[in-house]
Design a protein around this nucleic acid. Structure first.
Lengths: 156, 156
DNA sequence: TATAAAATCACCCTAAAGTATGAGTGCAAA
DNA sequence: TTTGCACTCATACTTTAGGGTGATTTTATA
């Protein structure tokens, strides 16, 4: 902390040190015969050093620290695993609840027979549903239907 | 900006103003009969003001601003469209180049007949290929094969 | 060059999928 | 209340898919 302070105010310290050094130099050179004549100037120099220091101390103590706030954007990859059903597309195509259900089971690779069992209806009903699904999706095969439905975000 | 500076350094300014006011007060009170006697003190006061100001100015000028680095998380939706084929899985299952090709076309919803035309081979050949694909993927239907292949990252 | 794996094709048969059509029921909106 | 829609089921038929088997030709590699 102290080291940091010293580092930050190096220029100020150098200024102060230079002033002090200069005074000492003058003092050493002319101590013996000029001290009496230049007493006022020496007094002024000392005053300058002391009050410059006071000023610096005051400013450092009282001045609110200047803060530069730097905003750094950190990219966070968000997984897009979350499937959101495209309701708009769904209503546009006019797919009913049951038809979508059949479509989902189709996508899981179930046969019409298995879908019928799963939904407790007859095989013929599933055939009817799938036929309507194909019609609405404008396809001929279940594999096409699944492919298109995935692209249209009707199923995950 | 200037207003901001004044606000931040109010204490310093008050200190300086007080010093000045004090000097003026002394001057006003004792101007006529003490000016000669206290010339040195007035000179010292002036020096004090000037060098205190100098110190403040120096400190303000030279003090390095504190840098606050704030990390802001920015959500970036990365398209996970980039399909990378799972070669390991591919070799594990022992799927041949041609079989994978057939699998891909299956996933696009093509019928065996269409696949045969696309690859310039007979329907029977496609049937053989698809049969081997089902065997290797341990499934019974093409819809299942497509579903499993997608999950295993064999096809996009 | 021998050999294994891949690719090709054929035939037969069954299962599943898909097409077409008709019809009954229930529910909600006009 | 009627009308439309979703859901249900059935029958008949066609097409496609899938299983099983066997065979020939390429192709890559030990």
């Amino acid at each position: 902390m102290t080291v940091n302070f010293l580092a930050r105010n190096r220029s100020v310290l150098i200024y102060g040190a230079s002033l002090a050094a200069l005074l000492f130099l003058m003092k050493w050179l002319e101590w013996r015969f000029l001290i009496a004549d230049y007493a006022v100037e020496l007094y002024g120099g000392a005053l300058a050093i002391v009050f410059t220091s006071l000023g610096i101390w005051l400013a450092v103590k009282l001045m609110k620290p200047k803060t530069n706030t730097v905003f750094v954007e950190k990219e966070v990859v968000v997984k897009t695993n979350d499937f959101i059903l495209d309701e708009r597309e769904l209503t546009r195509l006019g797919l009913s609840k049951r038809e979508l259900e059949v479509l989902q089971l189709m996508a899981e690779g179930l046969s019409n027979h298995q879908i019928a069992e799963r939904l407790f209806v007859s095989l013929n009903t599933i055939k009817t549903h799938s036929a309507k699904v194909f019609e609405k999706l404008e396809v001929q095969r279940r594999t096409q239907a699944v492919d298109k439905a995935k692209k249209l975000r009707l199923i995950p």
